[in-house]
């Protein structure tokens, strides 16, 4: 009972925040609503016994990325921080993109079918062992990818200066 209530509250904040991200006129509010969605999603993770994932989601996405976004919004602001009125928004195009994304994710979910067993909760210690032993190579490959992305970003930013 309490689980369902908690899930309902978390979903309300996650979905409500996401809806406001799309509809809000003020860019700063958009970023803060995104933070609400991310925290509520972390709450859902925690409810499914994925505490590590929840903490990392808050630490990296909300604590790090959202803070950086708040910072960036003000550095790039126009019209007093609100979304520029002369937009490149066409409802038709938005609908097309949204439809494609929804279709693709819906297709993937339906193809996968309903899980036939409850996902087993992996303790943080087991997760660490898995990441450093059988999955060490993909884990390192991801790090190299991130490093490459970071170097690429620096190179691009530098070129604009010169």
């Amino acid at each position: 009972m309490i689980d369902w209530l908690l899930f309902a509250v978390l979903s309300f904040f996650a979905l409500g925040g996401a809806a406001r991200v799309v509809t809000s006129e003020n860019l700063v509010h958009v970023v803060l609503y995104l933070a609400v969605t991310l925290i509520a999603t972390a709450g859902v993770y925690a409810q499914m016994d994925a505490g590590f994932l929840a903490a990392i989601q808050i630490l990296l996405y909300t604590g790090g990325v959202i803070t950086l976004m708040l910072f960036a919004v003000l550095l790039a602001r126009r019209n007093g921080g609100s979304v520029p009125a002369e937009g490149h928004t066409s409802p038709l195009r938005s609908l097309l993109v949204a439809g494609l994304v929804a279709g693709l994710s819906g297709y993937t979910i339906l193809r996968g079918g309903a899980p036939n067993r409850a996902p087993e909760a992996l303790s943080t210690a087991e997760l660490g062992r898995v990441l450093l032993d059988p999955l060490a190579l993909p884990f390192e490959a991801l790090s190299v990818l991130l490093l490459a992305a970071m170097i690429g970003a620096i190179v691009l930013a530098r070129r604009k200066d010169a």
């Binding site: 505490g51 590590f52 990392i56 808050i58 630490l59 909300t62 604590g63």
Partner: peptide, 14 residues
Amino acid sequence: LDIGLLFILSISSL
């Protein structure tokens, strides 16, 4: 919590 330290650090990053 088994991730107690991570919990404090993530909350204070907010």
